[in-house]
Simulated assay, not measured.
Amino acid sequence: MELPLIDLEELSRGEMAREECKKKIARASQEWGFFQVVNHGISREILETMRKEEVKLFKRTFKEKAMADKMFNFSEGSYRWGSPSASRLREFSWSEAFHVQLSDIYADGDSPAAASMPNHHLSSIMRQVATSLYELGQKLAAILAEKVGHSPTYFQETCLLTHSYIRMNRYPPRPNTFGFGLMPHTDSDFLTILHQDDVAGLQLVKHGKWVSVKPNPDALVINIGDLFEAWSNGIYRSVEHRVVTNSTRERFSTAFFLCPSYDTVISSPFEPCLYRRFTFREFKEQVGEDVKKIGHKVGLSRFLVRCD
């Protein structure tokens, strides 16, 4: 299926066009939890450069990738493959990824010592892409906040660039067998912005069924995360999604996650509240505990207000 497609150039075409564009963004976030944007202001050149650097990174040996924290100054555990929590084969994710906190690549990023490192080019490209995606995320989050009567400055105050993450994904081919590149899940953030290649694989739940998303090389895919659903009191939807593998082609994508500080309190002003107040730290710790104990994330249902 085609996701709702929104032309962000409409935001600069006059009051009526701007308001209609904002309504489309809010409507898609309520009805789908996903949408895609074009004319987003991020050049295809920089996104393709990022893709090329990503491919080169994943072509390194397993030993080199496992030592990425030392080679690239990433935090320990940034390189991930498979599903460490899987208890059976069908729970195993057929993929590998670098999940990088942006504070890692911005720390001393312009220092002479950093510039002399052999992997400086990758970090430099990551900073350019992350900065552009962060600015886009802030713009979209402010629009969504405005449409539910929240302060549009909330995200500028709580979601700093260095609190957010960028994730580089590779999904190898999986011949002759159906499998998940990434298991069904929701995102533990406010907003996710995805740049994917032309290999289909992303799927989401719509009307209780899994539907495949048709790749659009000119668009970025946006989806609502758990924190936004709680903060909007369920107006915007964090929708379950997954990635399925291709039998002959590998798939690459880059995802940006707009996150607050760990001490940020997530609370909705609407009554009655669907979810109790919680900090981002509480949410992440609960997710980690559930994954460790039962093998998968439970998510927002852990934070529902109990009426019994």
Rank of each mutant, 00 (worst) to 15 (best):
S188A: 15
H163L: 06
D189F: 13
D198S: 14
H185I: 00
G179L: 04
D189S: 15
T186R: 07
N176E: 00
P173D: 02
T177W: 08
I193A: 02
P184M: 09
R167S: 12
Y165C: 13
P173N: 03
I193H: 01
Q196C: 06
H195D: 01
N176P: 05
R167H: 13
I193Q: 00
I193V: 08
Q196G: 06
P172F: 07
G179K: 10
N169S: 07
R167K: 13
T192I: 08
D189A: 12
T192K: 04
T177D: 10
L161F: 14
R167E: 12
L194Q: 01
M168C: 09
M183W: 15
H195I: 00
P172H: 14
D198W: 13
T162P: 12
D198I: 04
D187N: 04
P172Q: 02
I193T: 07
Y165M: 05
T192P: 11
T162E: 10
P173R: 04
D189I: 06
Y165D: 03
R167Y: 11
R167N: 13
H185D: 14
R174P: 01
Y165G: 02
T192R: 09
G181C: 13
M168A: 11
T186Q: 09
T192E: 04
R170H: 13
D189K: 07
S164A: 10
D198P: 05
L161M: 10
P173V: 01
L191P: 03
N169G: 12
S188P: 15
Q196L: 05
I166P: 00
P175L: 00
N176M: 01
M168D: 10
R167L: 12
G181K: 03
R170E: 11
Y171E: 01
P175K: 01
D198K: 07
H163V: 01
H185Q: 04
F178R: 14
D187F: 10
T162A: 15
T162H: 12
N169L: 09
H185K: 03
H185Y: 02
N176R: 04
H195P: 00
R170D: 12
P173H: 03
F190K: 03
R170A: 09
F190V: 14
T192M: 03
H185R: 03
D187V: 06
I166R: 03
L161A: 05
L194V: 06
I193C: 11
S164G: 10
I166H: 07
Q196S: 07
T177Q: 14
G179I: 03
L161E: 05
N169C: 08
L191V: 12
T192W: 04
T177A: 10
H195R: 06
Q196F: 04
F178G: 08
T162K: 14
P184I: 07
I166C: 05
M168R: 05
Y171S: 06
I166S: 13
D187P: 03
Y171H: 11
G179N: 10
L191W: 08
Y171D: 05
F190S: 03
P184L: 10
S164V: 14
R174S: 03
D189Y: 09
L194E: 00
T192C: 13
M183V: 14
S164P: 11
M183H: 15
T162N: 08
H163D: 13
